[in-house]
Design a protein around this nucleic acid. Structure first.
Lengths: 140, 140
DNA sequence: TCGTCATTTCGCCAAACAACGAAATAACAC
DNA sequence: GTGTTATTTCGTTGTTTGGCGAAATGACGA
């Protein structure tokens, strides 16, 4: 069950509108949300993997993901207790992602993005179930 | 005398960094700032032409222009009392503009952008000196 | 030099936003 | 049904932001 979020059809048809483009820009105007999208370009992730990467509260990450998802750039699906997020595959979402590619490439050339990519590779080697479990104990 | 704004060399070298990309996204995440950039893609404009298009206070427009200019997307030059803004021509700015093109094209396909383009064409037919002069009397 | 004009900067304000912890929700195992 | 787990939603808080009018700045003309 793929979900782009609880957005109304009206909001969906605004994607091609100026407001929709501005919303996508605004979503990626937060550095942490930009880092999330760059991470998802490496492959789908569950919330706790993103939490581990960003070192933010899970509630904050969840909210960030909701904001990005509502722009259509990413989508999510449930697998048991886990919710996985990935880059949009729908026609409309993919159009937006394609248009964003040159800018995302620019961001990927940064030292921060490289450091994130290295950490993410390590995070992805940990069993997600174990990663989620150890997160509560690591909360400080 | 071209000016990209009073940005430090440190901020300039961050353009290729994640923060710089996020700043560009953030700048264009405001609908009015996005409208400004779409308008400048039609050709250079002075502040009062942009004020006429957006129907905002001149101080607000000036602030918006400063924010966009600091990202490197646009540049400005003085001609007497007038300050003209245009899309960036420097190597670095042009790279950013090029990367933004697909998204700007998406925004240009909107009804709002088309309406703006029509109004802007009319505004550009007015002598800028006369336009500026009549603006103070139109302030409500 | 003084007055006018175009723009920028400043100060204020209400709204929006990113962070957090707590509560609620949904999925799972026993 | 109960307890555990992953995630989302809610409420709070301090910070940021987009709008405005007023003040400051710089260019021009007499």
């Amino acid at each position: 069950m793929l979900t782009s979020g609880k957005i109304s059809e009206n909001a969906r048809s605004n994607r091609r509108q100026l407001q929709g483009v501005a919303a996508a820009f605004s979503a990626l105007g937060d550095p942490n949300r930009l880092r999330i999208v760059l991470a998802l370009r490496q492959g789908e992730l569950c919330v706790c993997q993103i939490v581990a990467l960003l070192e933010l509260a899970n509630s904050t990450v969840s909210r960030h993901l909701q904001i990005i998802r509502e722009t259509g750039i990413i989508e999510s699906y449930k697998q048991g207790r886990w919710v996985y997020y990935r880059m949009a595959t729908s026609d409309e979402g993919a159009t937006l992602v394609r248009a964003l590619l040159p800018m995302l490439s620019l961001a990927e050339a940064s030292a921060q993005a490289a450091a994130d990519a290295r950490r993410l590779a390590r995070i992805q080697r940990i069993n997600p179930e174990e990663l989620c479990r150890t997160q509560l104990t690591q909360v400080k």
